[in-house]
Simulated assay, not measured.
Amino acid sequence: MEHTKQLLRVAEIETVAPYVNRYRFTAAQGAPAPFLPGQFLCLYYEIDGATAVRPYSIASSPKEAAQGGYYDLFIHVGGSFTSRWLGRHITVGDTVMASHPLGEFCICPQTPQKIVGISGGMSVTPLRSMVRSIVDESTDREITLFCGWDTSREVLFREEFMQLARECSRVHVQFSLVQDPQPGDKQGYFTSQDILRETDAHAAAYYLCGPQEMYHSLHDGLIAGGVTLERYHQEIPGELHSPDYVTAPAEQYPLTIQTDSGSITVTANANESVLVALERAGLSPRAYCRSGSCGFCRSLLLEGQVWTDPGRAKPPENSVFHPCCSFPRSALTVALPK
């Protein structure tokens, strides 16, 4: 995995939907790093003494980076505190440190000719990168999109996707809305039967990006319908903010970090991941996906107990654990990777 960084400059900011901004980033030095359609990059923040890193899917195509010199990121600035801070404080001309592009949820040389993209809400952004890469002939694949939304006011890329589908015979798109569907839309959510009826389960690669509930509702039906695990891809599910067992007011525990020169003790809340506690203390812990997928944050749990989301990572094994999806259940002592 590539752990190098690049300095980006904000070239444009456009509000495209309620609380959603398009940020166009150009390289502050040299050229933006190349990537595969569907990959993400991380932005690094320093906010009031706290440090943080957050992943965002690249919504533009590799050719737009190579020839136009930019990445487009669509960010919900009414979400987490980092995104809200970005919406309030970052302006055109500012620079932001970022990772190089990362992730395996992407079109690669081994990807089959036919692709099925299934999205729920704002998670559609990596599929936009795939669609644009097909239209600008960065790749010769064919894609069928199923884009689901709750309300019409939230919908992104409807007109763009419909126009690209008219221009390119290798792009097909359908929309579903729970409320206020337009003519031709499905009312409600797409089911596995809806998707299998329109696609080739025995040949296509399926890319799902959305909330965990969408994955749960579609997985078994798609697999039973002939989609093999090798051709079934889910985007990382996003950061878990608080496990269900936590009740207010949240308990607090001492969190001790062992270093070569001694130790540092900070406070960890039961309703925040160990990673967030480390960031809140300004310690700049390693992190990328924040979902237990990439393993970049793996650390040593020397003392204490944590709860780890079983859907994202294994419980601590040989003292190794994932701070991004582990929550304190007692006083902790940890050692961070160097």
Rank of each mutant, 00 (worst) to 15 (best):
D185M: 12
K186A: 12
Q187N: 00
Q187L: 07
G188C: 09
G188W: 10
G188Y: 05
Y189T: 08
Y189L: 15
F190I: 05
T191G: 06
T191W: 13
S192M: 10
S192D: 09
Q193G: 13
D194P: 14
I195Y: 05
I195K: 01
I195E: 09
L196K: 02
L196E: 01
L196H: 00
R197E: 11
E198H: 11
E198W: 14
T199V: 09
D200R: 13
D200Y: 11
A201S: 15
H202Y: 07
H202K: 14
H202F: 09
H202G: 09
A203K: 14
A203T: 06
A205C: 06
A205R: 00
Y206H: 02
Y206I: 09
Y206R: 07
Y207E: 07
Y207V: 06
Y207M: 10
L208E: 01
C209P: 03
C209Y: 06
P211R: 01
P211I: 00
P211K: 04
Q212H: 06
E213C: 09
M214E: 08
M214A: 05
M214D: 03
Y215R: 13
Y215F: 15
Y215W: 15
H216E: 11
H216I: 10
H219G: 11
D220I: 02
D220S: 12
D220M: 10
G221W: 13
L222T: 04
L222K: 06
L222G: 01
I223W: 02
I223D: 09
I223M: 07
A224F: 08
A224M: 10
G225Q: 07
G225Y: 04
G226T: 11
G226M: 03
V227I: 12
T228P: 11
T228E: 08
L229A: 13
L229C: 08
L229R: 14
L229Q: 12
L229S: 13
E230Q: 15
E230V: 10
R231S: 09
Y232A: 14
Y232D: 13
Y232N: 12
H233D: 14
H233S: 07
Q234N: 15
E235D: 13
E235V: 04
I236F: 14
G238D: 04
G238N: 05
E239L: 02
E239G: 04
E239P: 00
L240D: 02
L240T: 10
H241I: 01
H241S: 08
H241V: 02
H241P: 01
S242Q: 06
P243F: 03
P243W: 07
D244G: 14
D244R: 05
Y245V: 03
V246Y: 07
V246F: 06
T247H: 15
T247K: 12
A248R: 12
P249L: 10
A250S: 15
E251W: 01
E251F: 05
E251A: 12
Q252P: 08
Y253K: 02
Y253W: 12
Y253H: 13
P254D: 09
P254N: 05
P254L: 10
L255Y: 07
L255P: 05
T256L: 06
T256N: 06
I257A: 00
T259K: 00
D260F: 04
D260I: 02
D260Y: 08
S261D: 15
G262I: 00
S263N: 08
S263I: 03
I264N: 11
I264E: 02
T265I: 10
T265M: 10
V266S: 11
V266M: 14
A268C: 09
A268M: 07
A268T: 01
A270M: 11
A270L: 06
N271P: 01
N271L: 03
E272T: 14
S273P: 11
V274D: 03
V274I: 08
